[in-house]
Every structure is written in C-alpha cells, then in structure tokens.
C-alpha cells in the first residue's frame, strides 16, 4: 500500500469518526469539533489526490475549505454563546421549543 492510498483510507476513517461524533454527542461545542474533524479529513483526501495527479488545484481547494471553516466556526461559536446566554445550556436536546 503506497502513501497516497494510505492517506485516502485514513481520511475515510477520520471522516467516519467525525460523523459518529456529530450524531452521538449532545454538546453543541463537541458537535462543532466533530464537524472540524470531518472537514480536516476531506482536506487530507484533497492533498492526497493533488499529489496523485500532480496538480496544484487540490491544494487550492484545501485553502478555500480552511477559510470557509474559519468563517463557520466564528459564526457557529457566536450562536452557541448567544444560545447559552438565554438557555444556560449547550445541550442540543434542550433546544426543542418548536417541537409540537
């Protein structure tokens, strides 16, 4: 197994762990960190495929994914802070007012 194949397989494993984190943890901050893990797994796959095809475009996509992740974290954490101020909790199961 050569390094590129190894990295793509590792990226699938990390992505799966991230999905498990999003779907099993109930704390909003932990869910956000799992999303970051999934984005990072995708970045690893991008870099591995850039190496495979000898093109820089894959690395460009990693650059943009990182920027979007930074924006997402800034807005997401601001939302969590605002929700914590009114609900005194970061548990996503406590946010069920719209449920009939």
């Amino acid at each position: 197994m050569n390094p590129i194949n190894f990295l793509v397989a590792l990226s699938a494993i990390l992505f799966s762990i991230g999905v498990l984190g999003v779907l099993t943890r109930r704390n909003a901050i932990l869910i956000f960190m799992s999303v970051e893990l999934m984005l990072n797994a995708a970045n690893l796959a991008f870099v591995a495929f850039a190496q495979k095809w000898g093109k820089l475009d894959g690395q460009m996509f990693v650059f943009f994914v990182m920027t979007v992740a930074a924006a997402e974290v800034a807005v997401g954490l601001a939302l969590i802070v605002t929700i914590f101020r009114t609900k005194r909790s970061t548990d996503v199961d406590d946010l069920a007012q719209l449920k009939g």
Partner: peptide
C-alpha cells in the same frame, strides 16, 4: 461508517495505483 471505510479500502486495494506525479507546490 463501516461500509464507507470498507468500500474505500476495497477500492484502493483493487484499483488504486497511486504513483505520485511531480509538480511545483
């Protein structure tokens, strides 16, 4: 998750040749 990992590993083992091509980065 198990299906994803197994399918990726299977695809890589059966058809991935994955030799690196040189490029400026």
């Amino acid at each position: 998750a198990a299906v994803l990992v197994v399918s990726v590993v299977y695809a890589l083992l059966t058809q991935g040749s994955g030799a690196a091509a040189p490029y400026a980065s």
